[in-house]
Every structure is written in C-alpha cells, then in structure tokens.
Lab assay of single mutants.
Amino acid sequence: LDITFHVDGKNIHVHGASEEVVRIIEELIKNNARAEEIKETLERLLR
C-alpha cells in the first residue's frame, strides 16, 4: 500500500488511501501529531 500525504498551508492532500484513512490522517495532523505517530497509526490500521 502506497500512501502519500503532504501539508500545504492548511490543506492536507492524501493520495492512495480510503476516505476513512484520509479522515484519520487529517485528524492526526490537526492534532499536531508527529510524522512518526501518523506512520505508526497507519501501520496499525493497515495490518
């Protein structure tokens, strides 16, 4: 699975993920999660 995301100002662009995963990533970023935390969360979800 190949998910890429980047933050452009306040806009979060996520590619290669389901809508549910996109929402989770957006929440994590809004809550100022570190990249490592986001990665760990995604790995748990995608197991």
Rank of each mutant, 00 (worst) to 15 (best):
H13T: 12
E27R: 08
G9A: 02
D8I: 01
K30N: 09
L46Y: 03
L42N: 00
L42F: 03
S18L: 04
L1K: 13
N11P: 14
L28I: 05
V14A: 07
H13W: 03
E26P: 00
I29Y: 02
H13R: 06
V7Y: 04
K39L: 15
R44I: 10
E20D: 11
N32H: 12
E43G: 11
L45N: 04
E26M: 13
V21F: 07
N11V: 15
I12Q: 01
A35D: 04
V21H: 07
N11W: 14
F5Y: 03
A35V: 14
E36K: 10
L1T: 10
F5K: 06
E37Y: 11
H6I: 15
E43K: 11
A35I: 14
V7I: 11
K30D: 06
L1S: 09
L45K: 02
H13C: 05
L1Q: 12
E40M: 11
A33F: 07
G16I: 04
N31T: 11
R44C: 06
A35K: 04
E26R: 11
V7G: 03
R23D: 07
A17W: 02
R34F: 07
L46G: 07
V22D: 00
A17M: 04
K30H: 11
H15W: 07
I25F: 04
E43Q: 10
H6C: 13
E37Q: 13
A17E: 01
E37N: 08
E20Y: 06
E26Q: 14
V22K: 06
G16W: 03
N11C: 11
L45W: 06
T4C: 10
E37F: 10
I29N: 01
A35L: 15
A17H: 01
R23W: 08
H15F: 09
F5N: 05
R23F: 11
H15Q: 08
K30C: 07
E43F: 03
G9S: 02
H13P: 03
V21C: 04
F5E: 06
R34L: 08
L1W: 08
H6K: 05
H6V: 15
I29F: 04
A35H: 13
V21D: 06
K10Q: 15
H6N: 14
G9L: 02
D8Q: 05
S18V: 05
A33I: 09
L28G: 01
D8G: 07
E20V: 09
N32S: 11
F5R: 05
N31V: 10
R44Y: 07
L46H: 09
V22S: 02
H13V: 11
K10C: 07
I38P: 00
E43L: 07
G16T: 03
N32P: 03
V14Y: 05
V22Q: 04
R44D: 11
V22M: 05
I3Q: 03
H6F: 13
D8R: 01
E20Q: 11
L28D: 01
G9C: 03
D2A: 02
S18W: 03
E37D: 13
I24Q: 10
L46M: 14
G16S: 08
N11I: 14
N11A: 15
E19F: 10
I29D: 00
L46C: 05
I24E: 08
N31I: 09
E26I: 14
K39Y: 15
L45R: 03
E26L: 15
V22N: 02
L45Q: 04
T41R: 09
E43N: 14
L46V: 11
E27A: 13
V14M: 03
T41E: 12
R44A: 13
D8V: 01
K30W: 07
N31W: 01
K10V: 15
E26A: 08
H6Y: 12
I25H: 00
L42M: 07
E27Q: 12
N32M: 11
I24D: 03
I3D: 04
E43H: 09
D8E: 09
E27N: 14
L45Y: 05
A17I: 13
L1E: 09
E40S: 13
L28A: 08
N32Q: 12
I25Y: 02
L45S: 03
E26G: 11
S18M: 04
T41M: 14
G9T: 01
I29Q: 03
L28M: 14
S18C: 02
I3K: 06
D8P: 00
E40L: 12
I38E: 01
A33K: 10
R34Y: 07
I3G: 02
L28R: 04
L28E: 01
R23E: 08
V14E: 00
I38Q: 01
D2I: 04
E19K: 12
E40A: 11
H6D: 15
R47P: 15
R34I: 07
L42A: 05
E36R: 08
R34G: 13
N11R: 08
R23N: 09
K30G: 09
R47Q: 14
D8W: 01
A17S: 03
T4F: 14
I12H: 02
H6P: 15
N31G: 11
I38A: 02
V21A: 08
V22W: 03
I38H: 01
E36N: 10
L46R: 06
K39S: 13
A17K: 01
